[in-house]
Design a protein around this nucleic acid. Structure first.
Lengths: 189, 189
DNA sequence: ACTTTTTTTTAATCTACATTAAGAATTGAA
DNA sequence: TTCAATTCTTAATGTAGATTAAAAAAAAGT
């Protein structure tokens, strides 16, 4: 389990064996059942999660009860409610499991202390956050400038694995349309 | 000029005088005229810019020639094409000035070398990027779950200064509607 | 294997927002 | 100050995508 995370870190900022040991001590393993929550809207997000196996998602629920998915996290992705995790404030996102999922949990306080002990890990998270921001910007531009059909096609090429693992209504929620309309788009091949 | 940046950094991770000197050496001052480009789509973004005075924007142009604004940067904000700047790849964003604007430019290579010389600055940029990601996520959720009228109201309370400085069509572009429709929304008070 | 729950499809109707076009108001450069 | 360019408004018409409803298909739990 922890090996997956260490490999991922080593791919970005190689660690010594001692540093690997510190990482192993600070994270906590957990298995989530399908639909089990990691974090609920209204609470402060205590943990950022690294997915070892399975898939999580973060989403907001609007005033009409509709869900809007912000992020999917398949294996080797981090997920959290970034706002809540960083500001220590309650926020509006939920995080739950789409499938049975194994994760490693890192609390914000552990993360901050690790930044002082192993500056390489501050770099690791800086780089991940830069990448996430670039991806988020790209998504915003797509959303502002492309029609639903093309957003769907892009999603398929971007996340080919997810297409066969998660329900279509989740894809619809992520690209910002109703499941009925996605079904219609798909009927046009 | 450089004092503005140093103050901003000190508000997050206080520097020694020596470190302040290093920062001052690594940035370059520049004044941009209204409509002058800092970065053009198709090129690699060399610089990240800290706005001292004025306002920049980043935007993409879609296949029909319409502009979609990703970010405004008034005084004390950083702006760049994050994807291009980080990956050293040409990208799809333009950055130009909405008003005459004074900026400090930091190249990616200077930034990376500064991270080794002054780890505090890696922390500074890590924190800024975390905040930017949280804000970007919040925008995405708003975009997925709120109708245009409410997105406009939120924009007004979020950026009260900008409302009176930049053209309305830029606001429309940022919140994802046409200027005509924004005009109609405003007519309903 | 069976039953319930969840997901997907189809189709009719509806609406938020886009498009087009043209005039009015502002802004800015000389 | 004036003229040209840009921005804003209004209004008629068009459309991508939402809503509603109901049935078919698939998946999950027992």
């Amino acid at each position: 389990m922890v090996q997956n995370l260490i490999q991922h870190i080593n791919g970005i900022t190689p660690l010594t064996e001692e540093e690997e040991g510190i990482v192993a001590e600070l994270v906590r393993e957990k298995t989530l059942a399908r639909k089990q929550f990691l974090h609920r809207a209204g609470e402060v997000a205590q943990y950022s999660a690294f997915v070892v196996e399975g898939c999580l998602r973060s989403y907001a629920v609007d005033r009409n009860g509709f869900e809007h998915i912000l992020q999917f996290a398949p294996a080797n992705w981090w997920i959290s409610d970034m706002y809540s995790f960083v500001k220590n404030q309650p926020s509006e996102l939920n995080v739950d499991a789409l499938l049975e999922t194994k994760v490693l949990l890192l609390s914000r306080s552990c993360q901050l202390s690790i930044f002082d002990r192993i500056p390489k890990l501050e770099r690791y998270f800086r780089i991940l956050t830069e990448n996430a921001l670039a991806a988020s910007n790209h998504r915003t531009i797509n959303y502002l400038s492309l029609p639903a059909k093309i957003r769907y096609e892009k999603f398929c090429t971007m996340y080919p694995t997810l297409i066969n693992t998660i329900p279509q209504k989740s894809v619809a929620s992520y690209i910002g349309i109703t499941p009925e309309f996605l079904s219609k788009l798909r009927a046009e091949f």
